[in-house]
Amino acid sequence: MPPPSASRKFMYPEQSVPYTVYAKREHPDDIFAKLDKPNELKLEERPTFLKVGALETVKGSAYMEYGKTKVMASIEPPRELGKQTKKIGTLGIVTCTLKYAPFAVKDPACIPRKETSMALALKKALEPVICRHEFPYFQLEIKVIILDDDGCALSTAINCCGAALVDAGIATYDLITASTVCKYKNVEFINPSAVIEQLVSTISESGDDDEEHGIVVTASLAAVDQITECFQKGYLKPETLKELTEHTLAINERILDTVRFVLYNKVKQQLRKDKDGAEMSDTINAVTDLGIEE
């Protein structure tokens, strides 16, 4: 089925289904048996690539690859709100739009629901971190596009937006980082892949009754020790929820190191460029001065 948002852009046939429907489907238990389960719990992030300032045309942007998940975030400069807007307050307004590329997931039918719920979650995660009192009567627009989703899309989007906010020069209270952990059949998966996320959401009822399953996404600020957003879905006992949240917080700190390192390098690079630029302009000035004297 074509993703509704894309039906205008792409000429899909109206009533089509992916051919995989007719392929022999594996039982969830078989898929689970094939997965490589972690022997010991390692609270580590996935191999990460982060580029700050990936786009030239916007105020701030970042591109992040978290394993195979690829996300691009861009931030428009704050815009003044029209006078007729009713939402008047002394705090700036943050709006988030999140789009999935039509080819980002295997089953495009779930895209519209994911887009709206993730945009909401992203907004709630980012609102507390932005110093909104610095731009009253202004609106800050954050746009995210998910190019490839191999699990952890929401947490990667939050990480990417955190870096993009710094690149845009928007004042924030702290660097925000987020991570995902999920639990399925008593095995805990750190940074679950799309296959595991799919398994968790299509769990069958006929199982051990005491079995838990669920996914937890936590966004936190390490310096002030605060959780800006905690999102859980599934069926978990409160103790498990607490344990999983602790684990996400530990991974968040690891990711924070990576993000900090990238930003630090970016600043160093910028300073070097500025210095070179200053020297260059000095020599140009000197040359032109000479030229005038001649």
Binding site: A121, K124, I227, Q232, Y235, L236, P238, L241
Partner: peptide, 9 residues
Amino acid sequence: KSYTSNVHT
């Protein structure tokens, strides 16, 4: 027993 099926802030 009580389980959490959804938590969010």
